[in-house]
Nucleic acid binder design. Structure first.
Length: 516
RNA sequence: GGCGGCGUAGCUCAGGGGCAGAGCAAGCGGCUCAUAAUCGCUGUGUCGGUGGUUCGAGUCCACCCGCCGCUACCA
């Protein structure tokens, strides 16, 4: 009995600054997967949100002359507006400052405490006054802070600790018996290697500042921000507030994260859940980093580029497609303006957009804009059969790639169908058929197949390019929205209704002309 | 230092014992429905180096060179 709801998450983002390309990358990938699962007919719950506690937020707010709550309230819209601009289809958006989160977090901590999983201990650390932070011994250069050149003070602080060290064996067993628990494989090997070296208990409270969720039995302490933040994945789906809902949605099918936060999601988070005997997320998938290269933005860093800059130039569809297609998901990848223009023009403007233009044009010109009668089996010739074969192979390859969490391979596969449709046009040359009255029915058959191919592409590409897919759908005279269609039901030939009026419209993806 | 990964066409990468591949870029040809588009054909490779195993090695092994990741309580 598998759970019916497919639950995917992005990390909740730390709102001490505005979103950059890296945040958008994770979020777009998660959205692609969420939309794909919905298109397969699955019920999906897609969660994202913001992480708003901790010392860094407090400092950022102070620097801006605001209270931490005022700071987060004014910056959260900067995040939600980017997600809206990227057509992110999240079902919920949780903020860790919401009561629905903070209350259940306290319950979670109290439960851990009651079970003896938390104890009061001392954190001994090296504190740099200049940084106002604890330093790890290996961060120091000759025993001095590399930033301030001073010798940090040895400081002891009373903290609550979680018995993380008890869970090393169970974590190792999990990773060894369930390979999909941490992906890609290289990331699983990383945590496996580290945890085999042993685990220390984890300090989970702070006393030096108060911007956080109070420890329920000792409110001098606030919960360490990561411990609070990780719980968003369960508080948002009813943990501690609606147990029936929680049981229906949890566990997550996939937590998407960047590789920088792998440790928290594959060690600390599962150990916390184990401690309360809660189900574990099925997969934590850690993708790589984006690097910025190329000329046009060579002076920019990743954090210096706003997603808005690229959305303005390429549209949300172009943005989503580029990052999902050009970067092998899981590994590190390079972003460059030049590569993005090249990919956009070649795949979207030339291959796909132009295919739509030429087909819609020919139907308007040769068939008065009306979708002809659905071809009979007997009217199909070799080229039609070949295109159908390619389409079926493509859909199967996409399914395989998405099951493997390889969006880049899925899109690569998708283009086999787009290319085949273009070569089919050349093969059957409708403009020649149009000159011969005796070929009238043949002309109808090939143009029907092409229009129907566009319908199938609209379904196929909706998860990655929702705007273009909806546009194309309506240009084919189809009712309703692609969003509401189920691929396994409608992803076959011959479902485009006879008599639909097509409209040509503007190019779906206007070419981007490069200056110089 | 330890553990792990990568190095294949001009570019981005796939392939993991049996005739070196894809897309893009380039060159040539075709077509005229289309967004200077599209279709077809064509390259070029010491598969990072050296040495091994094997009838046979991008592929397996050893060493070397060059990049890179991880090495936990800053989100």
């Amino acid at each position: 009995m598998s759970k019916e709801i497919f639950y995917v998450t992005t990390p909740i983002y730390y709102v001490n600054d505005v979103p950059h390309l890296g945040h958008a990358y994770t979020t777009v990938a998660t959205d692609f997967v969420a939309r794909y699962r919905r298109s397969q007919g699955r019920e999906v719950f897609f969660l994202t949100g913001t992480d708003e506690h901790g010392q860094k937020i407090l400092r950022t707010a102070e620097a801006a002359g605001l209270s931490p709550k005022e700071w987060t309230d004014q910056i959260v819209p900067r995040w939600t507006e980017v997600w809206a601009a990227l057509d992110i289809s999240n079902d919920d958006f949780i903020r860790t400052t919401e009561a629905r989160h903070e209350g259940p977090v306290q319950k979670f901590m109290q439960d851990l405490y009651d079970r003896g999983e938390i104890y009061l201990g001392r954190y001994e650390g090296l504190y740099c006054v200049g940084c106002e932070q604890f330093k790890q011994p290996d961060e120091l250069v000759d025993g001095r802070c590399p930033l301030h050149g001073t010798v940090p003070d040895a400081v002891e602080e009373e903290n609550y600790f979680f018995r993380l060290s008890n869970y090393a064996d169970r974590l190792i067993e999990l990773w060894e018996t369930v390979p999909s628990s941490v992906l890609p494989e290289t990331r699983r090997n990383e945590v496996l290697g580290k945890v085999r070296g042993g685990l220390d208990d984890l300090s989970i409270s702070r006393v030096s500042f108060d911007w956080g969720v109070p420890i329920p039995w000792d409110d001098k302490h606030v919960i360490y921000v990561w411990i609070d933040a990780l719980q968003n994945y369960i508080t948002a789906v009813g943990y501690g507030s609606d147990e029936a809902r929680f049981e229906r949605i949890w566990p997550a099918d996939i937590h998407f994260v960047g590789k920088d936060i792998l440790w928290f999601h594959t060690v600390i988070w599962p150990a916390m859940l184990m401690a309360l005997e809660l189900p574990l997320p099925k997969t934590v998938f850690a993708h790589g980093y984006l690097q910025v290269g190329g000329e046009k933005m060579s002076k920019s860093t990743l954090t210096g580029i706003s997603p808005h800059d690229l959305i303005d130039a390429f549209g949300s569809d172009g943005y989503r497609y580029y990052f999902m297609r050009d970067i092998s998901f899981g590994g590190d990848g390079d972003f460059s303006w030049e590569a993005m223009v090249a990919r956009y023009n070649s795949d979207l403007a030339n291959d796909f957009g132009n295919l739509a233009s030429r087909v819609l044009n020919m139907i308007s010109r040769y068939l008065d804009g009306s979708v002809p009668r659905v071809p009979e089996e007997a009217e199909m010739t070799l080229p039609e059969q070949s295109m159908i074969d390619v389409q079926q192979g493509t859909f199967a390859a996409i399914e395989k790639a998405m099951d493997d969490i390889a969006p880049h391979d899925a899109l690569k596969a998708a283009w086999a169908f787009v290319r085949r449709a273009n070569s089919y046009v050349e093969e059957v040359a409708p403009w020649k058929l149009a000159k011969d009255d005796a070929e009238r029915r043949r002309l109808e058959v090939v143009l029907y197949q092409l229009a129907d191919a566009l319908r199938l592409m609209s379904l196929m590409l909706f998860p990655i390019m929702p705007k273009a897919a909806e546009k194309l759908w309506s240009r084919l005279g189809l009712e309703g929205r692609v969003e509401d269609r189920i691929l396994p039901e409608e992803g076959r030939w011959g479902l485009l209704p006879e008599g639909n009026k097509v409209t040509i419209g503007d190019p779906l993806f206007p070419r981007i002309e490069t200056e110089a």
